[in-house]
């Protein structure tokens, strides 16, 4: 296989196509290298304001088997719901689901005010423009797969994709959970080895790729609550997180109203919205919290957790 040498967009149309069907392990390595290089080099991974900070750091990548029984379980009411479509319903002959977590660059994360009920400009810009980049990445991965003898579909960018009553036809977070990227926090975000402050994307492919082992068994395994922590509950300016909201721990509508109406009104002239209090200045913001289940402490997570905690964690 070729090494990923071209600049992002990458794939030189005149270059010979490789066949990723021959060696799934090598194909996954090649794909991971492509995604990491793309995130590193594509010029759209940058804020359009100020110092043009990079939005996303190096991503985490996970792969799920398209026939993983958990995808069927997502159709259960209260999990995602009957509207949720399995990989094979998006792509005939689906074999694998490629999922990634894009962590916010440290500078963007650090720009978020600790005390204010509002986010920083860099954060709201990163949320909006970073999702545009996430779309760009989805399309680049599809083009990459096509170039290498496969097909790909990004459900979240399909014309008929939608969320009905906040139930999506495809849940990026749940796909990431199945692909071994992390487990949920009570704030609803996925806690990964790089924390929860980021965005998730995925592409379904008909190529066979080796599934990533899931180093967890429980939905909330990386979240120390209720035994410890709970720092996101008082931090939410909309009081949208807590046991009073039942098994899912949060009121999604309050969350949307805060992001769209309160934050959106404040940043109206900029054209931005969306909140991020539950992703910042928390023990799980950039790592799996130390207080989480011992089973959550994978070698990678342990290494991360053994790094000195930032000073701000003691003052949350």
């Amino acid at each position: 296989m070729n090494t990923v040498a071209e600049h992002a967009y990458l794939l030189d149309p005149s270059a010979p196509a490789d066949d990723m069907r021959q060696d799934p392990g090598q194909a996954a390595t090649h794909l991971a290298a492509f995604i990491r290089q793309f995130v590193e080099e594509d010029p759209r991974n940058a804020l359009p304001e100020g110092e043009r900070l990079r939005i996303w750091g190096s991503p985490l990548l996970g792969i799920a088997a398209a026939d993983d029984p958990l995808f069927t379980k997502l159709k259960t009411p209260g999990v995602v719901g009957p509207l949720h479509r399995s990989p094979g319903e998006w792509l005939s002959g689906a074999q694998s689901v490629i999922s990634w977590f894009l962590p916010y660059n440290k500078a963007v994360r650090a720009s978020y005010p600790k005390k204010s009920p509002l986010p920083s400009l860099a954060w709201v810009s990163g949320r909006r423009n970073g999702e545009v980049f996430n779309n760009v990445l989805r399309r680049a991965v599809i083009r990459f797969l096509e170039k290498h003898g496969g097909q790909g579909v990004a459900p979240s960018n399909e014309a008929h994709y939608q969320a009905i009553g906040m139930i999506p036809l495809w849940s990026e977070r749940h796909a990431a959970f199945i692909a071994g990227l992390g487990s949920f926090g009570i704030h609803g975000a996925l806690i990964t080895a790089l924390g929860c402050a980021g965005r998730i994307g995925s592409v379904i492919t008909n190529l066979v790729l080796p599934p990533t082992p899931r180093p967890y068994r429980e939905i909330y395994e990386y979240c120390p609550y209720p035994d410890r922590c709970g720092a996101c509950i008082p931090r939410c300016p909309a009081q949208a997180i807590g046991a009073q909201f039942g098994a899912n721990w949060r009121d999604n509508a309050r969350c949307v109203i805060q992001g769209r109406d309160v934050v959106g009104e404040f940043f109206k002239d900029w054209g931005y919205h969306s909140c991020g209090h539950c992703l910042t200045w928390l023990p799980c913001a950039d790592r799996i919290p130390r207080a989480s289940s011992p089973r959550a402490q994978t070698p990678e997570a342990k290494t991360r957790a053994e790094e000195p905690e930032p000073a701000f964690l003691s003052t949350v």
Binding site: L11, P43, A46, P48, K147
Partner: peptide
């Protein structure tokens, strides 16, 4: 190509919009 500009999105002509050789 340049860093993003507020209020716009962009796509590379070669490879991204038109991926076929000699298109």
């Amino acid at each position: 190509v340049s860093p993003p500009v507020r209020g716009e999105v962009f796509y590379f002509i070669e490879g991204e919009l038109f991926s076929e050789k000699d298109a």
